[in-house]
Design a binder for these strands. Structure first.
Length: 259
DNA sequence: ATGGTCGCAAGGCGA
């Protein structure tokens, strides 16, 4: 089972690049972030014609997540518990039925800038809400995959220029601490577990020639429960997508599981 | 030191 995550930065803008990557990469499951569309505006037929089931959790103009799957889905849920006043579409879950059943959670963690401030407070509170949901799901002892745009640079080795991020919500000590608190529940950062070397990124800003200078950061992650980590076969960043026509500022990253 | 680039959607916010 090949499970990818891809922050597409707008489905309308990626209406050609996303299908092209799907055709080349052939993922079974894709968690999308920043679809920037309401559910009714998402071009589901395009992906259904490619053999994907389509589950969206959209919002006008901003945020929005989705799951595309060639495999059957069960128990699809939308939204992250813990704050009834939260109207931002950043979380979707489904159980994917492969040779094993895997619970897949697609997430778009708040950016949090500027920090300090209310947006940073929202980010940290959201991470605590996520932590509570992870604890709930761990009790099921199902294989769990939490993938998406975490908007967290875990370590200095995950940025080309860590010094410029020191006061940024993606790299502040509290952000990295909250990310480590997720790991300490027993989750595995799939990419880092298999790739000890620095200099491997999933995001390059559109500005200032970041891609050409390889001034990137690693902020898109798959965190795996122990039951999922035992099934891990491979993990890759599809870096070349960033050099394609009309690219997102993020690239896809995927895992394959024996499931 | 500043602004620099995109997307959505139609002005300015978010990243």
């Amino acid at each position: 089972m090949k499970i990818a995550t891809f922050n597409i930065n707008g489905i309308k803008a990626r209406i050609e690049a996303l299908p092209a990557w799907l055709t080349a990469a052939q993922p079974d499951v894709v968690c999308l972030q920043e679809i920037k569309s309401v559910d009714e505006g998402f071009p589901r037929g395009l992906f259904e014609d490619m053999g994907y089931r389509v589950e969206t959790h959209g919002q006008k103009s901003f945020n929005g997540v989705a799951i595309l799957s060639k495999l059957p889905l069960e128990d699809v849920t939308r939204g992250l518990a813990g704050d009834d006043s939260d109207e931002q579409a950043r979380w979707i879950e489904a159980t994917v039925i492969g040779t094993r059943a895997v619970r897949v959670c697609g997430l778009y963690l708040p950016n949090g800038n500027p920090a300090p401030g209310p947006k940073y407070d929202y980010k940290l509170a959201w991470m605590e809400r996520m932590r509570a949901r992870v604890i709930e799901l761990l009790a099921t002892e199902e294989p769990l995959v939490f993938c998406g745009d975490y908007n967290v640079i875990p370590q200095a080795m995950d940025a080309a220029k860590p010094e410029v991020w020191l006061n940024d919500a993606l790299y502040l000590p509290q952000s990295r601490e909250a990310f480590r608190r997720l790991l300490h529940l027993g989750l595995t950062d799939a990419f880092r577990a298999r790739n000890p070397s620095p200099g491997q990124y999933t995001f390059w800003d559109y500005q200032a020639g970041a891609w050409e200078r390889n001034n990137g950061i690693r902020i898109d992650h798959h965190l795996l429960s122990a039951q999922a980590a035992d099934l891990l076969r491979d993990v890759q960043i599809d870096k070349q997508v960033r050099a394609g026509d009309k690219p997102s500022d993020h690239v896809p990253i995927w895992i394959s599981l024996d499931a």
